[in-house]
C-alpha cells in the first residue's frame, strides 16, 4: 500500500461493508435481487482499501455507499462486489 488512502480522497464517498446478517434486510427494503444491484469490481481501489481494514471481501458482498448529494445532503447507494476485473 502506498502512503495515501483512497478512502480519504474528496472524490471518494464513504464505503461501508454491509454485514452478511443485514443483507436480507437491505435487499427487502430495496425490493431487488442481489444480482440486479449496481456492481463494483473486486479490483476496485476502494475495495482494496476496505480489504486492508476488514480482511478479504468475497464477491457478492454488498457495499453501502453514502454519497454527498447536492440535492439531498447525503444519499445512500448500494453496490455488490463482482469478480469482473476491468482493465
Amino acid at each position: 500500500m502506498g502512503k495515501f488512502n483512497v478512502l480519504q480522497h474528496d472524490l471518494v464517498p464513504e464505503h461501508h461493508v454491509v454485514p452478511k446478517s443485514e443483507e436480507d434486510k437491505v435487499l427487502k427494503e430495496l425490493e431487488i435481487a442481489k444480482d440486479l444491484l449496481p456492481k463494483i469490481s473486486r479490483s476496485d481501489p476502494a475495495i482494496k482499501a476496505l480489504e486492508e481494514i476488514h480482511g478479504p471481501l468475497d464477491t457478492g458482498t454488498i457495499i453501502r455507499i453514502v454519497r454527498r448529494s447536492p440535492t439531498m445532503g447525503y444519499s445512500t447507494y448500494y453496490r455488490v462486489i463482482t469478480s469482473e476485473v476491468f482493465k
Binding site: 495515501f4 488512502n5 483512497v6 480519504q8 480522497h9 474528496d10 472524490l11 471518494v12 464517498p13 464505503h15 463494483i40 469490481s41 476496485d44 481501489p45 476502494a46 475495495i47 455507499i65 454519497r67 453496490r79
Partner: peptide, 21 residues
C-alpha cells in the same frame, strides 16, 4: 495534498480512485 488533488481524466480517476470517484 493527496485528498484534494484531481484530474480531468475520468478513466484515470476510475483506475486510481475507483468507480464511485
Amino acid at each position: 495534498d493527496a485528498n484534494r488533488t484531481y484530474t480531468n481524466d475520468i478513466i484515470e480517476i476510475s483506475t486510481v480512485l475507483g468507480v464511485e470517484a
